[in-house]
Computed example of a mutant assay.
Amino acid sequence: MTAAAPLDSVRKTATRLLGSSSRNSYDPGLDIDWDAPVELDMKFMPFERTSLYGTGLWDRMTEQQRIELSRQELASVASTGLWFELVLVEMLARWAYHQDPQDPRTQYALTEIGDETRHILMFAKAIARLGAPTYRPRPLVRQLARIYKATATGPALFAPVLVAEEITDRLQREMVNDESVHPLVRMVNRIHVVEEARHVRFAREEVARQMRDIGPIAKVISNLASAVVASFVATALISPDVYAEVGLDPAEATRAARGNPNYHETRRWMAEKIIKFLDEQGMVTWYSRPIYSLAHLV
Rank of each mutant, 00 (worst) to 15 (best):
T106L: 11
T151R: 12
E179H: 12
R136P: 00
I167G: 04
V207A: 01
M270T: 05
S222R: 03
E166W: 08
D249C: 09
E245T: 05
A36T: 06
A295I: 02
Q210G: 04
P101S: 01
G54E: 10
S22D: 12
G56R: 15
A197N: 07
A109T: 00
L110Y: 04
T254R: 10
E112R: 09
W34D: 07
R129V: 03
A156D: 02
P261R: 05
T55L: 02
A230K: 09
Y135N: 04
V176L: 09
A75G: 10
L57G: 04
H264R: 14
D59V: 06
H192T: 10
A156H: 02
P160T: 00
L294I: 07
E90N: 13
T80S: 12
Q102C: 02
Y148S: 06
A145M: 11
P101K: 01
D115N: 13
V163Y: 08
R146K: 13
S239R: 12
M187H: 11
E205A: 08
A227M: 03
V246F: 05
A244I: 07
V10L: 15
E63F: 06
G247P: 14
T266A: 14
T254E: 14
P101N: 03
P160F: 00
E206F: 02
D249P: 12
P104F: 04
F158T: 00
M270L: 05
P261S: 02
T15S: 13
L74K: 11
P183I: 15
Q72F: 11
D103F: 04
V242S: 11
D41L: 03
K219G: 01
E68S: 08
V229K: 06
Q107Y: 01
R49K: 07
V200Q: 15
V10F: 04
G154L: 01
P133V: 09
N223H: 06
M122L: 13
F47E: 08
V185N: 02
L18E: 03
Y287C: 00
